[in-house]
């Protein structure tokens, strides 16, 4: 039980800092609610872990970023300017998608190009496959008359083939 209490105290400290503790310098941002901060954080990505959105990240660095958002919101900045601030601060990583310029444009273009190219390929192949087909099946008079015996056997097999 002692151990539990000790642990409880330990984690209390941890969590108070993590979740509740507004750092000292953020006094003026205390009017900004967590929801308002997360509204912005939802459009940013943790620069340290890949694929984790800022509002869902529990790293200390990310909590600091959220505090910064709160300060900026209190100062009257809008979402776009906050985003560009973080881009200059941490690089394009925080956007969660490659910027649409330079080499990174390739990230956007290539899938579309491959898809269109593939579609064109399928289309031309499909057309050439269709051209192979004869206009009409051979008229029944040219066809050798199927013997009744075989036709009967076929019907039998069909009946069994379910």
């Amino acid at each position: 039980m002692n151990r539990v209490i000790h642990l409880l105290r330990l984690t209390l400290l941890l969590f108070v800092f993590l979740a509740l503790g507004q750092p000292l310098y953020a006094q003026d941002a205390s009017t900004v609610t967590a929801d308002q901060v997360n509204e912005v954080a939802r459009e940013l990505w943790c620069p340290l872990c890949s694929g984790v959105r800022l509002d869902g990240c529990e790293l200390k660095a990310c909590d600091q970023m959220k505090d910064e958002i709160a300060i900026k919101l209190a100062a009257g900045d809008d979402t776009e300017s906050i985003k560009s601030y973080f881009v200059t601060q941490y690089g394009p990583q925080v956007l969660g998608e490659p910027p649409r310029s330079g080499f990174n444009l390739l990230a956007w273009i290539l899938p579309v190009a491959v898809l269109l190219g593939g579609g064109l390929f399928v289309l031309t192949r499909g057309r050439s496959m269709m051209q192979d087909i004869r206009p009409a099946p051979v008229a029944s008079s040219e066809r050798p008359v199927p013997d009744d015996d075989y036709a009967r056997r076929l019907d039998e097999e069909l009946a069994r083939h379910d």
């Binding site: 099946p137 029944s140 066809r143 076929l154």
Partner: peptide, 16 residues
């Protein structure tokens, strides 16, 4: 009817 005839033709020739 057309496809059926064609397929039956195939089946018969295969049987033979």
């Amino acid at each position: 009817a057309q496809y059926n005839q064609r397929l039956r033709g195939q089946a018969l020739s295969l049987l033979k």
